[in-house]
Amino acid sequence: MPYRGDPRNLFLARAGLFVALAATLQAVESLIPSPAPWLRLGLGNALVLAALILWGFRGGFLVATGKVLLGSLIAGRLISHLFLFSLSGTYSSLFMMALAMALLPRMGYVGLSTLGAVAHSLAGLAVASVILMGPAVWSLAVAVLPAAVLSGAVTGVAAWYLVKLSGGRVKALPVEGEDIRG
């Protein structure tokens, strides 16, 4: 049955689901032990990218913010220096992807997501160089950036599949009264 109620409810339900998933993924990832703290797949970003594509910048911003706050809360990192890493990384990635979307309409999920992942990593390195290790941290980039390119590509495919599963037709925040059934 197509949903016939207030389309804002549908948006809220979906965006809420996205936030919950993104936060959970981020928290779960941060709890799995890793050989290096920067080595993460960053699947939460797939949901941020999907939200950006489905609902535009406002949707992406909502999911990104929810992901950072809730995800860090669940993982117990909200009040810790680790929070700075996810905050800076997530927003850098969000802005980078939004910018690329605006400038390059023909760019696909993989490219957007890879750009986002690299921005995320660069932000993380910048934060680490300020609060943790000093300039020495940039030598880590040898390992961090290629890993980001790889994980960015994977999350790009994940975002593409997510949008496909969501129907793919809701391209903007629905305005009141608009028929979003497509």
Binding site: L21, L25, V28, E29, I32, P33, S34, P35, L39, R40, L41, L43, V154, A158, Y161, L162, L165
Partner: peptide
């Protein structure tokens, strides 16, 4: 899909907390 992602995640990050 999510289950598959989590599996992929677990696989991609072999626990090495004792490294």
């Amino acid at each position: 899909f999510i289950a598959a992602l989590i599996l992929l995640l677990l696989w991609a990050r072999k626990p090495e907390q004792l490294g």
